[in-house]
Design a protein around this nucleic acid. Structure first.
Lengths: 111, 111
DNA sequence: AGATTAAATCAAATAATTTTGATGTTAGGA
DNA sequence: TCCTAACATCAAAATTATTTGATTTAATCT
């Protein structure tokens, strides 16, 4: 039995740039702790790191690390106010990635 | 200046189960090579491993590894036909995760 | 049966990510 | 100015994920 050599008719639409970009975003989402952070931000709107640490019970440096990952993926936003850094969701970005169903799971305020 | 101790009014909707489940799915998506596989499956509908290897230029064992990750996340389906294993997208599952916009990027046939 | 092809699995090597604890930086209060 | 609180950053250690090449399993063909 034989098989034809397959042809990939150049119909794939995702460019390398797309692949790279979404890899980063999915990586940021691919962690329970970060999903939890997103979930909390969805409920509390805008939160500083010091308020977040006791909620999710995580050393501060660890939290900073995870927030940075989310920030670099453009899934959350950061605003400095004096000594505090307030973080909030980048809702439009998240909505551009997640299905409505998933938005309901992680961004309850969106439902 | 002082700050109140924050209260997390139990409004977060995502359960631990949700977090675990979606972590797995996002992990599966968080890789350029696997996104490319998804993209190819979207174009070619159903493909066996031996057809896929030359297209994405990847050793067979590596490809098997990545297919397994996608399969375990329930993002693709597998059907045995004689010697061959045919893989295809689990479109409904993907649509339940990805925004319409992203479906258009990775699942062109859906647009 | 023996040979061949498809594909999964395995163990070792490599690479990437995450965690930890310490240190640095900045802003505000005393 | 000095002290403290809020965060970010850093380097080392620990954990996970990926890659590689070899081996195994199973189906088909001669």
């Amino acid at each position: 039995m034989k098989k034809e050599i397959p042809l990939l008719n150049n119909i794939t639409t995702a460019s390398n740039q797309d692949l790279e970009k979404y890899e980063q975003k999915f990586k940021a989402l691919a962690d329970q702790q970060r999903l939890q952070i997103i979930n909390i931000l969805a409920v509390k709107e805008s939160v500083c790191v010091c308020d977040l640490t006791p909620i999710i019970d995580m050393p501060q440096s660890k939290l900073s690390y995870h927030l940075k990952i989310l920030l670099e993926a453009d899934l959350i936003k950061k605003e400095k106010q004096g000594t505090w850094n307030y973080y909030s969701l980048n809702v439009s970005e998240l909505k551009g990635i997640l299905s409505d169903q998933l938005c309901c799971v992680f961004l309850p305020s969106c439902c």
